[in-house]
């Protein structure tokens, strides 16, 4: 089974890398957003391979269901409706590629060569696998990682409030078409405002009484 796992991992990793490469190289911004979504799916598949089902499902729920939608909203609301983008790759891309790989190797090589990978030995047959489900995650959140949990919560709340503050428009600047009921109420409020300014209680009554039968007749 080890070989199958390695092959599947290789395929998923290849898919993720290809999708990520497409994100930065397609012309159309919407297409690159869609390739990013494919990348997220790939990462979710990796989580499944690591037997972290809860994380895989949450990855899909949060990244594909919410973050991608946010990205798409941001793109669609801020760009003109024109499909063509600017070509991302210059003509000297082989040189750029070589330089990038060398830099990356310079950073990663010492780590890869000198690190002692702490791969634990395979447990003896028959031991039940530790279940890392939502219950364990929850307990971790309120016991060991309480501070981190609360900080993330505060961060999210601050972001939410900030979004509301940024998007809040003064009501007076919003003009919209009134419904019929709103127009009638507006008229009544205006009449009441003008009547309180010029008080004529004696004549106001018969006017009111005359107009009502007219509307009922």
């Amino acid at each position: 089974m080890e070989v199958v796992v390695q092959v599947v991992f290789g395929l998923i990793a290849l898919f993720i890398l290809v999708a990520a490469a497409m994100v930065v190289s397609v012309r159309n911004v919407i297409h690159s957003a869609l390739w990013l979504i494919a990348c997220f799916f790939g990462v979710g598949a990796l989580y499944l391979l690591l037997q972290a089902e809860f994380l895989a499902v949450v990855q899909v729920l949060v990244y594909v269901g919410a973050v991608s939608v946010l990205i798409l909203f941001a793109i669609m609301l801020t760009r003109q409706i024109s499909g063509e983008g600017v070509r991302q790759l210059t003509s000297r891309w082989p040189v750029v590629l070589v330089v990038t790989v060398l830099l990356f190797a310079t950073v990663m090589a010492p780590t890869l060569i000198n690190q002692q990978w702490n791969v634990p030995p395979a447990p003896p047959l028959g031991t039940p696998e530790p279940i890392a489900g939502p219950a364990e995650l929850g307990r971790g959140f309120v016991n060991e990682f309480l501070i981190q949990f609360q900080v993330v919560g505060v961060l999210l709340t601050v972001a939410l409030i900030g979004a509301i503050v940024i998007a809040f428009e003064e009501r007076a600047r919003r003009r919209r078409v009134l419904t019929l009921a709103e127009e009638l109420e507006l008229k009544r409020l205006r009449e009441r405002a003008t009547q309180t300014e010029t008080p004529e209680p004696v004549e106001a009554e018969p006017v009111a009484r005359e107009t009502r039968p007219a509307s009922e007749g």
Partner: peptide, 25 residues
């Protein structure tokens, strides 16, 4: 029979939001 079946249900249903945006765009 997924141990996280209910969450799977709603995670997958949130994917169709992306499809709607694609359709509108």
């Amino acid at each position: 029979d997924l141990p996280t079946g209910l969450l799977f249900f709603f995670a997958i249903s949130s994917i169709s939001a992306v499809g709607l945006m694609m359709a509108g765009w």
